[in-house]
Every structure is written in C-alpha cells, then in structure tokens.
C-alpha cells in the first residue's frame, strides 16, 4: 500500500484539482507535511524508514514546486487532463506571438551596447511581465470554464508562458552582468 506515491500533487496536498490556489494556504500545508515527513524526523529510525522518508519528502518538495509556480501548475493540470504541452516535440507556435518574441530577442541583443542599457532593459522587462501576467489571467479563465476549446487555448498559453519565462531569465542575467 504505497498509496502516497500514486497520489497526484493536488492529492498529496489535500487540495482540489484547480488552477486557482491560495499560495499562503499551500505554503502552510507544505510546512505541515514536511514537519511529518522530513528525513530529520527519522534520523534515529531504521534505514527503511529513512529511505522512505527521503522519497516522500522529495515528492512533497516536487509537488510544492509544481503547485506554487503558475506555469508548472498549468502544465501539470493539463497533463492530468491528458493534454501534453509538448514544448520539446511540438515547436509550431502562433505566428503573431513568434513575431513578438523575435522582436523582443532582437531588442535584447542590442541592449547591451546601448548607453542607456539598464533603463531599456527595465522597459523590456516590464513588457515581458505584462505579457506574462495577461496570460496567467487567460489561463485561469480557461481552467475555470474547462471546455475542450478552453483547454486548447490553455495549452497554447502554457507554451507561450514557457517562452516568456525563459526570456525573463535572460533579461535578469543581462541585468546582473550590467550591474
């Protein structure tokens, strides 16, 4: 009866499968779960208990990382519904979105040499964050209505969010190099 390993991340946290989550509540649940399962609670226990606790605590950590990040949460919810976001296999994207991304990238490549690099970088970052936030709201709406078409849009949105997340990381990296 290794039920815990078969549970999905929402079940581990005792939560309904929903995109809408109260992060404060999730964090509290996370701490309570780790209070029970963390290997430090089994420091004097048998090897078997310790092994098991390492596996369970790792599972809880993974679940927490997935639930608290909206992009990962969205991807995971889609997977639970049998929809693969396929970021690696399926590279076809909405052409308008791809256009925007290419422009962003071009801007990012020239920004380093600009006299006003930090300010320009800040503007790019705001642009990316706005695009990101708008898609999170879209994702929420899609999951709320939960129809077949909605989930198709949700899949597309998660794929776009993945792009935006990556470019945001690059902006931060350039920012770090400049400072």
């Amino acid at each position: 009866m290794q039920a815990a390993f078969d549970k999905n991340y929402f079940e581990i946290f005792g939560l309904p499968e929903s995109f809408r989550l109260d992060l404060t509540d999730v964090t509290k649940r996370y701490r309570d779960l780790q209070q029970q399962l963390h290997p430090d609670r089994y420091a004097s226990a048998s090897d078997q208990d310790r092994r098991l606790s390492v596996q369970m605590a790792a599972q809880v950590n993974e679940a927490f990382q997935t639930l608290k990040d909206p992009v990962r949460r969205g991807r995971y919810l889609l997977a639970l519904k049998g929809i693969d976001t396929g970021e690696e296999s399926d590279t076809a994207m909405n052409p308008a979105f791809l256009m925007e991304q290419m422009e962003l990238r071009e801007a990012l490549e020239t920004v380093r040499d600009s006299d006003n690099a930090l300010a320009e970088l800040g503007a790019l970052e705001t642009e990316v964050i706005d695009a990101f936030d708008a898609r999170i709201i879209r994702l929420q709406t899609c999951f709320d209505s939960d129809g077949n078409e909605d989930l198709k849009v949700a899949r597309e949105t998660v794929r776009e969010l993945q792009f935006l997340q990556k470019i945001r990381g690059e902006i931060e990296q350039i920012e770090e190099e400049l400072v």
Partner: peptide
C-alpha cells in the same frame, strides 16, 4: 525490514493525512 515494509509505508501515509487533517481542522 521486509516484513515491516508495508507498515512503514502506511505509517508514512497516515502521517501525511495527519499533517493535512490538522490543517483542515485549523481552517
């Protein structure tokens, strides 16, 4: 170890439920 394997897993599972039950009660 072998004969207590399931027991250990069940206890771990019960621990998880306990952690969350306490939580739900709080709320």
């Amino acid at each position: 170890d072998a004969v207590t394997q399931d027991f250990a897993a069940r206890r771990m599972d019960a621990g998880m439920r306990k952690a969350l039950t306490g939580h739900t009660l709080d709320e």
